[in-house]
Write a protein that binds this DNA or RNA. Structure first.
Lengths: 210, 210
DNA sequence: GTCTATAATGAGATAGAC
DNA sequence: GTCTATCTCATTATAGAC
């Protein structure tokens, strides 16, 4: 098999460093050193640091969505269970010591004063595609209101990630998973969780545990 | 009334700039200029930029929680309605052109490679107190499982803020509010939204609208 | 307490040889 | 394509006068 190309070595180094320490804290020098090349070589392969940032997110795009696809699992189980499983996997994944939240959201925040930055655009696009994938999974499972449910569940995922990051407490993934499963279950019974009506006569029930 | 002190002028400038552009993008020079003092004067009042960052978050702490307290409103209405109202207010607030998400979460992310930074500690502490306040409100309203519900609702708030920030679309606050109201309503009926049991026999219902 | 002026450092990016 | 060496600029922080 072929030697790893210089370009991909640089991207690999950028991935590790940007994700672990953030975009602004990591210098081009650090990336070059980690990649085992000089800065001049790095600039031969990439035009600028912004270019590297873009490549970093690009490299994470597909793997991230595929990871969630695996977590959701096949359609041979009820959707609420699959969703709970997804959040359960997230909890385990986020418990790893080198986990640092969502690289896309973090990029959007770090580059908040550069709305036109390619990485910011890419982050929004990535999240839209992720939401669309999830909504589609709901649709295929015959869940009512798949688009709305997609919005709600990605919001729970996003919130759980932020809370885990701030508190270093993965339990937020589990409680978010319970919430998501309840929403999905409510929709699965044929109801649509939207609108402004009161829900006080709802009777969604979950057995007590944990 | 007394003239605004130099110290508070500096903090005011730091607040505006840090919140709008982020911690790393804003230089001490910019803050000094905005405050109408020289850099030397700034360093007379604050030891370092990190010190300024801390003061910036400190200044936002109480106002932020009070804002949510107002949004939740008095206890003269059913809790699901109050929660929906809170998210509705968030949607309107986040629609303002100078809104930039949660300063605490953003600080935690920008300073992700400095886990011991005072601002990072303060962010976690702020969010814990916020969650405790919300859980207490549920408790006072007699809702079952107030602590769990507090976790779930803050997770929805956090997620909605992140999504709005990335997509510049306040509708995430509304759908998150619907989800939160449903969770609260489910708990209000005496159920506790926890555990691992399937929820497929739940029948929480919300009228379709919007 | 506030000013002008200046360190001291680290960053992104480039020159030109091989 | 990769190297050594350097440029240019922004940034945090400080010196010393008034």
């Amino acid at each position: 098999m072929p030697e790893k190309s210089t370009g991909s070595k640089i991207i690999g180094a950028a991935e590790e460093l940007f994700y672990e320490h953030g975009l602004r804290s990591v210098s081009v020098d650090m990336i070059a050193e980690r990649a085992g090349v000089t800065k001049r070589t790095l600039y031969y392969h990439f035009d600028s640091k912004d270019d590297l940032i873009e490549a970093y997110l690009q490299a994470r795009d597909n793997p991230t969505i595929e990871r969630y696809r695996t977590w959701l699992g096949a359609a041979d189980r009820p959707m609420p269970d699959r969703i709970r499983h997804l959040f359960s996997c997230l909890a385990e994944y986020a418990g790893q010591p080198n986990w640092r939240g969502c690289g896309f959201t973090r990029a959007a925040i770090e580059l908040i004063d550069m709305p036109g930055h390619p990485a910011v655009i890419m982050a929004a696009d990535h999240k839209k595609r992720f939401e669309a994938w999830l909504a589609r999974a709901f649709e295929e499972a015959g869940t009512a209101g798949p688009a709305l449910l997609g919005q709600q569940v990605v919001t729970l995922i996003e919130g759980a990630i932020a809370q885990i990051l701030v508190h270093r407490d993965v339990s937020y993934a589990r409680v978010a998973g319970q919430a998501a499963a309840l929403l999905v279950a409510a929709a699965s019974t044929g109801d649509i969780a939207t609108g402004e009506a009161t829900t006080r006569h709802g009777t969604a029930r979950q057995k007590e545990a944990v």
